[in-house]
Amino acid sequence: MNGISDTQLVSALRRQMTIAVAKQVASAGNLANVDTPEYKAVEVNFASALDERLTPPAATHSKHFSTASSGAISTQEIPGVTPRRDGNTVQLDQELLTMNRAGGDFSAAQTALAAKFRLVRYAINEGR
């Protein structure tokens, strides 16, 4: 059957959660330094976040799937923000928004993963 295997899905769910955590950590650091002079706000690297996509286009060999989740997550300075008078680039509402969104992403992935576990566990228990 042509579809997404369970292992792929679990791997992708894990990655979504890891990225959500990274975003929260970055935002927490930014919020802590909202009043620090010369501090530049950081964000999760866009390229590493893109690896969330489950099925890379035209992936035919099973070996392709493992690379989707193995990229390290890194942070970079948020580009294009005009610093305030003290050199700080942290935008308070932006960071809070990011944290809330990341929390939502994490919740969705965690609930889906818990549901998959429950399904498998049921099959194991009742399939005797």
């Binding site: 955590v21 935002s27 927490a28 919020l31 960071e95 809070l96 809330n100 929390g103 994490f106 965690q110």
Partner: peptide
């Protein structure tokens, strides 16, 4: 006022992180 807002925002950050951790723990149930 600025310091108060920053204080409030960081309080919110702590509770959001705490939510995340408790949700992650639910996976183990």
């Amino acid at each position: 006022i600025g310091a108060s807002r920053a204080y409030q925002a960081n309080l919110t950050a702590i509770s959001l992180i705490r939510d995340l951790v408790s949700r992650a723990l639910e996976l183990g149930r």
